[in-house]
Simulated scan of single mutants.
Amino acid sequence: MPEIFGHLPDGRAVERVTLQNGVLRLNLLTLGAIVQDMRLHGVDHPLVLGADSLAPYLGSMQYFGAMVGRYANRIAQGVFALDGQKYHLSRNALGRHCLHGGQQGSAARLWSIADLQADRAVFKLTLPDGEMGFPGTLNVLLCIALRASALEFDIRATCDRDTVCNFSHHGFFILDDSGSLAHHRLQIDANSYLPVDDDQIPTGEIAPVAGSRLDFRAPRNLDGAALDHNFCLSNTRTAMRPVARLDSALSGLGLQMETTEPGLQVYTANHLPKPDARGLGGRHYGRHAGIALEAQVWPDAPNQPSFPSPVLRPGDTYHQKTRYVFSRP
């Protein structure tokens, strides 16, 4: 049954629900469909970065574990054109760009619980036409489920006007209790990535990873690696397939990521530490305390015709599936 986790400044209650299947245990919040805590049976430490109270999620941890959208990542200058019409969006990144759907994107919204079972929860959200500048009413249905040793996200959305749609789970994972990624190795099935400017906006170039510091086609240690890049997995949405693997030499735990999406944003929490980022069990989250593996359409795709299309039209259904599969030594 849902329990009260805290209250927003306007008095609305944020609820928490718990899913478990004997292998994994998961706490979810109605705010942003946040994964607040996640545990593997027999392992003492959490597998994600989270907070024990609501306050950090209203501050510097606003995206930790959240489902971000209606357009995950960045749209340059907070503007894009669709069918000859220009749309001006919420500019919540550096005062210049739209990030994760704007100031009141899906991470800042209260989702309603449509169905709740022992090992899965279904959340609903309606994003109105014109909110944050985006066209079209967007109706979103999100199923978060535990499947054996896997955490699975199945998200669908429909619209009543031509719009753009791109959701992503923004969880930070860590597979040991060291407080950093120093003992982790990462492998990504991507031959190219998107170079960005100083504002993290793609330049439009699609560059090969070969010969660069972003070549993770073979497993590489993450000690000191500062990443915030989109890896190009494909040119369009595909069938579910493995795209990345994370392992900790310290704990022996592993994580395989599978998705339908054409892009993978990898972010190593370069912005930490923050004074209010007090973590689970009182943990202090420092630089590179966790890694976000965000399945998505490529950033700024509404302004880049050569990128995979994020356009959603009436009568069509946006459908993304992403799965994180955990393994033991």
Rank of each mutant, 00 (worst) to 15 (best):
G22F: 14
A225T: 11
V48M: 04
K274C: 06
G281P: 11
T18W: 09
G78Y: 11
T163F: 14
D189N: 13
V43H: 06
Y193N: 00
Q103A: 10
A108S: 12
G65A: 07
L127Y: 10
P9K: 02
H169D: 11
Q85L: 09
R328L: 06
R147Y: 09
Y285D: 00
L125W: 04
S234K: 15
L26H: 07
E152G: 07
P308H: 01
L31K: 05
N235S: 13
P299K: 01
N21Y: 14
A72L: 10
Q20K: 15
R91W: 07
P242L: 03
G281S: 09
I188M: 02
P329T: 13
L146F: 15
L127P: 09
I34Q: 02
G171S: 15
I188C: 00
V209L: 04
R39T: 09
V79C: 14
G224D: 05
V48Y: 03
Q256N: 15
L280Y: 05
Q265K: 05
A93Y: 14
V48G: 01
S106T: 15
F307L: 02
L151H: 04
F5I: 09
P195N: 03
A66L: 10
G42V: 10
L94G: 12
S60Q: 05
A13L: 10
Q85F: 06
N270R: 13
G130Q: 03
T317H: 08
H41C: 12
V43R: 04
S180Q: 12
P308S: 01
L280T: 04
L272E: 06
L255V: 12
I4V: 15
L175I: 14
P262F: 00
E261Q: 13
N92A: 04
I206E: 01
I206S: 00
A81C: 14
M38I: 09
R16L: 07
L40H: 04
R16S: 04
G69A: 03
A269G: 06
D83Y: 06
G211E: 13
Y324N: 01
D247Y: 14
I155L: 05
R278I: 13
G315W: 13
P308N: 03
G59S: 10
L31M: 09
D10L: 06
F326R: 03
R185S: 13
L26C: 15
R213A: 15
L19S: 00
I34D: 00
D276E: 07
A277W: 07
R185F: 15
G179H: 08
L222S: 01
N73K: 09
Y324L: 06
R12V: 04
L24A: 00
E152I: 08
T18L: 04
A150G: 07
I201S: 00
T268I: 14
M257C: 13
G6Y: 14
L142C: 10
A295V: 11
F173L: 08
L8P: 04
S106H: 13
T236S: 15
T30L: 05
H229P: 10
V48I: 13
A226I: 15
S60I: 11
N235G: 14
F5V: 04
R161A: 11
V68C: 01
F231L: 02
R313L: 08
M240T: 15
L58K: 04
P314V: 05
D177F: 12
G281Y: 07
L24H: 04
D83I: 14
P2A: 02
R328Q: 12
H288F: 12
L214Y: 14
P2M: 05
F167I: 09
N139P: 05
S60M: 09
G102H: 03
F80N: 00
Q296D: 11
Q320W: 05
L28I: 10
